[in-house]
Design a protein around this nucleic acid. Structure first.
Lengths: 147, 147
DNA sequence: GGTGAAACGTAGGCCGT
DNA sequence: ACGGCCTACGTTTCACC
């Protein structure tokens, strides 16, 4: 992992479809050397994958919220049950197990407020271990470099 | 926006580097028709871009936290000043303006706890408008579909 | 790490429906 | 207006230096 690898990662983070020849030009190496480095970064799992980034507004997503969840008890069984219920909920895009006053932080994306209410009732309301719920609606994201 | 477009987006979200011919096979269209649809989705900003997804653990990131920030006053000037300070902080990967008991939610990624302490002092501690800070350390992310 | 050549994919014109 | 076919062009990828 040297300067070249770092530049490769920087360019590929900005444009995952950058062609190998253009990438080679930008980092100042030949295409073949560049390709070998990229393949090595992929094989060693430094690059986990490539994804198209969609524009939520253009995809019918008009409601985004972070939801902190507190469980009524902290047993392993409770946590696994909760995570299982969350894993099948398509509205939940992220689920983080965090320290602090609540156990989980979710990012939830829905079509609109009505769809969120539905999610709140049908999914959150149906997990018996859930004790406390606090919804923070996202109004704007002045910085968002989610890879 | 029909079934074909939806399938294109689903495949490209999973693999942003999928070649056009393979994509065409998977959705059951010819390569040229597929390419035209993809280009249209890019032009109309449904596809915002493509990114390489890095593995934080393999990139020397061993500390991830969500930080909620409350400002001492809610003037436009205060918010703009805060957002400006955040935009140049490389440790801040996301900054969301939210409703609820605090104004901002940040996702902060650093090499380790010591680097986070440094960030906390040098960046957060130097923004006079910051009133309240609550750090929630990410222990695990059982679901993470960040694009 | 660089070079060259073959295999492969892209992208645009053209025609049929 | 939209999908399929064909072809020139560029890119990827590999054995070899």
């Amino acid at each position: 992992m040297d300067r070249f690898d770092e530049r490769i990662l920087r360019e590929l983070k900005l444009d995952g479809r950058l062609s190998n020849v253009l990438l080679a030009e930008r980092i100042g190496l030949s295409p073949s050397a560049t390709l070998r480095r990229v393949q090595e970064l992929e094989k060693s799992d430094v690059i986990a994958g490539y994804r198209a980034v969609l524009n939520p507004a253009q995809c019918g997503i008009e409601f985004i919220a972070y939801v902190s969840i507190g469980l009524s008890n902290h047993s392993k069984a409770s946590q696994l049950h909760f995570e299982e219920a969350i894993s099948v909920a398509k509205e939940v895009v992220e689920c983080h197990n965090i320290t602090g006053s609540s156990e989980y932080l979710l990012r939830v994306e829905t079509k609109n407020l009505a769809a969120y209410k539905q999610f709140h009732m049908d999914v959150i309301g149906n997990i018996p271990q859930v004790n406390a719920v606090a919804t923070s609606v996202v109004m704007d994201s002045p910085k968002d470099e989610r890879a």
